[in-house]
Amino acid sequence: MFAVYAESFSSDDPLNGLVVGERPAPEAPDGWATVTVKAASLNHHDLWSLRGVGLREESLPMILGCDAAGVDEDGNEVVVHGVIGDPRWTGDEADDPGRSLLSERHQGTFADQVVVPRRNLVPKPDSLSFEEAACLPTAWLTAYRMLFVQGGCKPGETVLVQGAGGGVATALITLGRAAGLTVLATSRDEAKRARARELGAHEVFESGARLPVRVDAVMETVGKATWTHSIRSLRPGGRIVISGTTSGPDVGDAGLTHVFFKQLSIIGSTMGTRGELDLLVKFLHATGARPLVDRAIPMEEARDGFAAMAEGDVFGKIVFTR
């Protein structure tokens, strides 16, 4: 079958190990489902995999991709939850120490077909296109969990989204606005600030700019480059929810004095559960909010999508279609 896969690793030139070609069709074990992929979205995780982060050399070749929407063997339109956990685990899937994402231990979604545990399938409503639904399982689910599960954000609160432009950040802006939050956003890029405002941010600022108000919560995915600004932007008793460090994890000043004196909370957040994905799908169906697709391109042209993400030339989600 057709597939987009990692054949080797390179930290300097990750696209060097990317192959667009053929791989054997998957076989579904008992309790697993085969999904014919209609659309799959690209994540930074896929670039990190090509650098050898989170993916072992002995697992190569590995079909990339964590997200997909498609049709199961019974003709049902579904969204694929990409977290593969221990079937004996009964708690929050994000807490399962044995969990992995598709394309880490199990072949991913950038292919004609993908197999996943049947419990990982969420019904796709007709109101969402396959391209929109394919954006949800990683970036949008991460944003949903950050805001409403780990962050506990409520209508009327003010939230700062750092680094507007990426898939998680655009999801945070859209979901926050739809849920009745006052959304502030930052970006180094003037064009991306303008797009964030169009997307629903109430106010936008240059990265590091002093805000006119202290916020209830900061959604942090950037890390080193924005951490100090995030700490200083919070009201007393405020909280930071962090799910990534795209600029690096090491900070010169963690702002510990501010943390204890202002009684701030720092909360980690990773992915989300199958149940939360189902709630996210229903939230979008009910509110009419939709993922922002930066571009939808045939999966055969996946290399172009990877190159755009590597260069930072993205606002929203890159989606591969079949």
Rank of each mutant, 00 (worst) to 15 (best):
V168P: 00
T287E: 11
G288P: 15
H44T: 00
D126Y: 04
D189Q: 10
S207T: 15
L147M: 11
P123Y: 01
G167K: 11
V35F: 06
P97M: 05
S230A: 14
M62S: 03
G252N: 13
S233I: 05
P117G: 07
E220W: 06
L160P: 10
T34V: 14
S59H: 06
A178I: 06
R145W: 06
R99N: 08
D92E: 14
D74E: 14
T36G: 08
F205I: 02
E22Y: 03
V213A: 10
D96C: 13
I84N: 03
L128N: 06
I173Q: 10
A33F: 09
V78W: 04
G21S: 08
D250N: 13
A133L: 11
V241T: 06
R51G: 03
F283T: 08
G288I: 08
T170G: 12
R105L: 14
H44D: 12
R193D: 06
V37D: 05
T246H: 01
T174A: 15
D250C: 01
L160Y: 00
G244W: 12
T228L: 14
V35W: 06
A164M: 04
W140S: 14
G238P: 14
L18G: 10
S100I: 00
P236T: 05
R195H: 06
E157H: 07
I63L: 08
D72C: 04
S10T: 01
L160C: 02
V281G: 01
S269F: 10
R23H: 09
G252R: 09
D313L: 13
L121I: 03
L101N: 05
T174E: 13
T246W: 00
F148K: 03
V161L: 10
I297K: 09
T90M: 11
A6R: 04
G152C: 05
G52N: 12
A139Y: 01
V293T: 13
P24V: 08
P14L: 02
A178L: 11
F260E: 13
L160F: 01
F320M: 13
T34I: 10
A296M: 08
H285V: 01
L184K: 02
M1I: 12
Q162S: 11
I173N: 12
L277Q: 11
A139T: 07
R105C: 10
T287A: 09
M309W: 02
F9L: 11
A171P: 08
T34K: 14
A143W: 02
V241Q: 08
R99S: 10
M271I: 09
E58K: 07
S41T: 07
K38Y: 03
D112L: 02
R303T: 09
G85V: 15
V314P: 09
G244K: 09
A25L: 07
Y5G: 05
E22N: 12
G312Y: 11
A164V: 07
L279A: 15
T34N: 01
M1Q: 04
G288A: 11
Q263H: 15
N43Y: 09
G70A: 10
V79R: 00
G52Y: 13
V4N: 04
F260T: 14
G200V: 03
F260Q: 07
